[in-house]
Design a protein around this nucleic acid. Structure first.
Length: 264
DNA sequence: CTCGATCCCTGGACGC
DNA sequence: TGCGTCCAGGGATCGA
């Protein structure tokens, strides 16, 4: 993409959106700032999803590539924007125009922006389990396994409860605590469970605030009951069996005897 | 519409 | 010490 300029970097759910300006016609791109003001509006975007282990950052071009480097963009200041991803769960796509719009339309509301009424309507309007709804990017965008579990613990809602089964009050509480958690996690630059590092190469701090996720066998911060784990919506789900009463017939996994120490 | 199963992929944890 | 096995996780896909 020679000549393209990154005009803005935005977040869209779990995606990073690199807005790319049109190729420069002249040598000097900076001097045209006063003239062509709106070329970016028709330009495309690079959509980047980091998956689990993706990482994107700029390095001096002379620096040797890290292992699992899959994509490099040479920048005009001599650095290289590099994408590394050990597990290759991440994805990258360049889209523009209606294709870009269409792609972005597939996703649900941003929980940090959506109104309380709309959040409640979404949650109560589906029969799926609340955990599945929180993870479904088409219902709400941006929430992953950690923040789903953390918000459900705070709201005292069992992950296997059906969305449509929640009371309005419960759904409102979930909206509030989810926003609080996401805002705080963003300030603390995320949760570094194993190897996550932010774009500056620094680990996040929010894992210190986890109340449920990864705490199987440890005591609930509210009531002291041992946190349990179950597979809900195909994902490990951590919850307090006392604070978050299960729907009838729900089976959780037996506590591991001495099993592997799961990360706190 | 919702579910579970399967696949992708690697590093780390675990068992022997 | 070293090797094999299992597993986590976001998401696409498919059949039920």
């Amino acid at each position: 993409m020679p000549g393209r300029r990154i005009s803005a970097v935005e977040r869209y759910g779990k995606f990073m959106l690199l807005r790319l300006g049109q190729p420069d016609r002249t040598e000097s791109s900076l001097s045209s700032a006063g003239g062509a003001a709106n070329v970016d509006s028709v330009a495309g975007s690079l959509l980047v999803h980091l998956g689990m282990t993706g990482h994107i950052a700029a390095f001096p071009a002379a620096k040797p590539h890290e292992k699992h480097t899959h994509v490099c963009f040479l920048l005009d200041d001599g650095r290289e924007l590099r994408y590394t991803d050990a597990r290759r769960f991440g994805r990258m796509a360049y889209l523009e125009g209606t294709a870009l719009e269409k792609e972005l339309q597939e996703f649900g509301a941003d929980p940090l922006v959506v109104s309380r009424e709309e959040f409640v309507a979404q949650v109560r309007g589906h029969r799926a389990r609340i955990k599945a709804l929180l993870l479904d990017q088409g219902v709400l965008r941006g929430v992953g396994n950690i923040y789903a579990d953390e918000s459900l613990w705070r709201a005292r809602i069992h992950p296997a409860r059906l969305g449509a089964q929640l009371t309005t009050k419960q759904a409102r509480t979930l909206h509030r605590v989810l926003r609080d958690i996401l805002e705080k996690a963003i300030v603390l630059r995320g949760s570094s469970i194993s190897d996550f590092l932010d774009a500056e190469g620094e680990p996040g701090e929010y894992q210190r605030h986890h109340r449920a996720y990864g705490r199987e066998g440890k005591r609930c911060y509210r009531c002291g009951t041992l946190i349990r784990r179950a597979i809900v919506a195909g994902r490990s789900s951590y919850f307090c069996p006392r604070c978050q009463p299960a729907p009838r017939g729900f089976a959780m996994l037996p506590l591991p005897r001495r099993g592997k120490a799961r990360k706190a």
